[in-house]
Simulated scan of single mutants.
Amino acid sequence: MAILEVKDLSVSFKQYSSSLKQKNYDVISDLSVTVEEGEIVAVVGASGSGKSLLAHAILGILPNNAYVNGLIKYKGEELTLSRQEALRGNEISLVPQSVNYLDPLMRVGAQVRTSVKNGDKVKVQREVFERYNLKEQVDKMYPFQLSGGMARRTLLSTAMISGAKVIIADEPTPGLDSASVAEALKHFRQLADNGCAVMLITHDIEAALQIADRIAVFYAGTTVEIAPVHNFSGNGENLRHPYTKALWRALPQNDFIPIKGSQPHPDHLPSGCLFAPRCEMATEECSMSRPEMKKVRDGVVRCIHAS
């Protein structure tokens, strides 16, 4: 059973143009993904595909001009705003992309200790700092005294000792040295193996393949494919969606073939399949309506041509 379930999620933002006309921008639409206990689901896709917005929607930390529709469940029950607030930082923990989430007026050691639920808080904090190569004197520092890598490792430390049942890691490794990246990935895998559910949001497909069980591929604010990690191999012949295959073949270690065109802006989404204008398999039928997600082999895909 999925501990975290997102179904048909849509997120739009109300904005005003220079002529003060109001317009809604649909940045996420019909997005669905699940994460089970003991599982790591990696969410990949280009910038602007909705990855970070998904994390913020789950935690209930979107800005006031956001409108959310769809269903988000935790342990089978809907995540209402009040329930999101109660679970945030407790049973559902975020490793944020921005280091600005650190409180600038509080020493970082004290900040990390607020996440410790059981045991000697100082001991737990110092052990996790040691694990991420943060020296003992770092716990007395303020965020402005940290390098970018140190700040990111501090954020990782906070989530790793939170005891949360669900960890959402939003681009947790940029700016880290290779040893810290390896340690973080190893720790995420250990958390999952101990029953935690991990959603790893990343641009780094290679890092995701090292630890993930399934890969969810986002494009222009929606899910286009969710596939088991072993499908990402060879020439991508076991993948289902043309975008996923193109993304796989665009990697330097594969064919290094760029994908023509660019992801559409939320203000200019095509009718029908969102990837159709860039897809070599597109037919007239692809532009008539947006495909539904369907099961194909041991994964799911949003493409009428997938088989």
Rank of each mutant, 00 (worst) to 15 (best):
Y16A: 08
I304T: 10
E85D: 13
T34K: 12
G109N: 01
K73D: 01
S29C: 10
L251N: 03
S147N: 10
R214C: 06
T202Q: 00
I215Y: 00
L102V: 07
N133T: 11
E37I: 03
D213Q: 04
Q15A: 11
V296Q: 09
Q111C: 07
I215F: 00
P242H: 07
A227E: 01
P228V: 13
Q190S: 12
G119N: 03
R214L: 12
S162D: 04
W248E: 02
R290N: 13
S262L: 07
H230K: 15
I215Q: 00
V95K: 04
K295N: 13
Y25S: 06
V138Q: 01
Y243M: 03
A110V: 12
Q253T: 15
H305N: 09
S262R: 12
Y16K: 12
G76C: 06
S289T: 13
S262F: 14
Q15L: 10
L191E: 09
V68I: 15
P174E: 13
F13H: 02
D139Q: 14
L185M: 11
I304P: 01
F129R: 03
N118P: 05
R290T: 14
E171P: 00
K21A: 11
Q125E: 15
R278M: 05
S178H: 11
E127H: 06
D103Q: 10
A306F: 06
G261D: 01
N69S: 15
I58K: 07
L59S: 02
S93W: 07
D170L: 04
F232Y: 14
A246Y: 08
Q253S: 13
F129W: 04
M1H: 11
H187E: 14
N64S: 15
P266M: 12
R278Y: 10
L176C: 07
Y67L: 09
E36D: 12
L274W: 12
R126P: 02
C286S: 06
Q253E: 10
H203L: 04
G76D: 01
P270N: 06
P104M: 08
Y142E: 00
A208H: 03
P270M: 03
A192D: 04
K295G: 08
K260Y: 12
T244M: 04
G236F: 13
F13Q: 01
V35W: 01
